[in-house]
Design a protein around this nucleic acid. Structure first.
Lengths: 226, 226
DNA sequence: TTTCCTCCTTGATGTGAGTCAAGGCGAACC
DNA sequence: GGTTCGCCTTGACTCACATCAAGGAGGAAA
């Protein structure tokens, strides 16, 4: 008798590699929830109730408020957020705004904290996933500190395209103004910078972007162009 | 018969909360090593051999090379680095330059990867420590994206002082030029910015800094001062 | 003492991105 | 249809920080 939520758990990178026994324990406590676009799933400063694992649709993690808002990263299907806050039982450092309709698995933070002290497979997998997140953030910090706006945008576009070579088409994971603060720039600057990248084979049409050659863009990122 | 390296392990935040059984397993594989100032402990791109836990002295984590160098963070006694790379078995994303003489516990990455799949206490503790690091990095990203140079410097000085109120004296954790890139600015700008902060009660004398009132500095960070 | 470093500071000038302000464009609604 | 509203783009101007260039201060070695 397999639990009906197991197939959903298998879609989440954090849980997919776990043995059946662990998955079943998680399935017991997990809940499925729909959400709609342009809302907040949770806000900075709140106590951690759940971790969110996205089955469909996605969110953008933002820190700070209004004019001092910093977009940390976009998250979509298969990804999960809030593990750090849940494990430590500390208030969220960020808010999550939905970027589309969708549904998410919610795992209660308290129960997860219990499980992690009893289940090696789960604990080890959490550590590995957190390690991956750490590396993503390090990459972002290096990029902000060492590259200008145009290079950061180019790198971001490359990271958003699944392919690693040739031409690619992608859809921006959120509104342009969210993409702008993800890159640490203003919407006006994003607009101008996208125009500059036309010279390097980047065509824009609304929130859909076409890269003529990923290699060419990548060359631009790594060039010193003094 | 207690292992002689256990007292050292107890000084490391990552391991301190672990039960004796876990500590003994770690003690078996750990080694103690001295290092001297102005050298590299490891470099970006290398395969992970060890995680480094600092007993005495410290390092600065830097990404990139030379003129495109980004200082990620300073680490000192009780702290540890490279857990993410070790757990995933992926090449280092950063290099470590020593900022003083000192000694570190080295834990072999391969052995640690084995242990973590067998020892719940260790795995859970790694997950918690990685969660803490995640939150530190998120804080840094928010700060870079939402605050100007003077505010970032002020916040950094506050974070470096142990106290949370009143007056404080602190020593910069590295050379001024390293502090500068930690803040995402140039050494010249750091110099000028420190001068500006004199108006807010920050006195500089070489690498030693005196803050007259932490509350006053904190107020400056959070003010919009338009 | 001298030279020769390396690190830091200071001043003059340059520039990338921010700010301010106007308008375009599509979606939703009456 | 027309109106409104939110998102994006564009242009003119500003400013924070970078760059370039010239010392100064301290330490090490001869």
């Amino acid at each position: 008798m397999v639990h009906p939520r197991i197939p959903f758990l298998k879609k989440i990178a954090l849980f997919a590699p776990l043995p059946d026994a662990s998955l079943e324990r998680l399935a017991e406590i997990a809940g499925l929830q729909r959400f709609s676009n342009h809302g907040y799933l949770f806000r900075e400063g709140e106590e951690p109730d759940f971790i969110y694992c996205f089955i469909e649709g996605g969110i953008v993690l933002v820190g700070g408020v209004d004019e001092r808002e910093a977009v940390i990263e976009f998250f979509g299907p298969g990804e999960s957020v809030l593990l750090p806050a849940a494990l430590l039982g500390l208030p969220y450092l960020v808010s999550a705004r939905t970027t589309s309709d969708g549904q998410a698995l919610l795992i209660p933070a308290g129960k997860l904290r219990q499980l992690i002290d009893e289940d090696v497979a789960l604990a080890a997998q959490c550590a590995r996933m957190l390690s991956r997140h750490w590396r993503v953030l390090i990459g972002q910090i290096k990029e902000i500190k060492t590259h200008g706006a145009a290079e950061r945008l180019a790198q971001f576009l490359i990271s958003q395209s699944e392919k690693a070579t040739g031409a690619a088409t992608l859809t921006l994971p959120g509104m342009k103004k969210e993409v702008a603060t993800r890159l640490g720039i203003k919407p006006e600057t994003l607009s101008r910078t996208l125009k500059k990248l036309r010279d390097y084979g980047v065509e824009t049409d609304g929130d859909s972007i076409r890269i003529q050659s990923i290699e060419r863009l990548a060359a631009f990122v790594n060039s010193d162009h003094d």
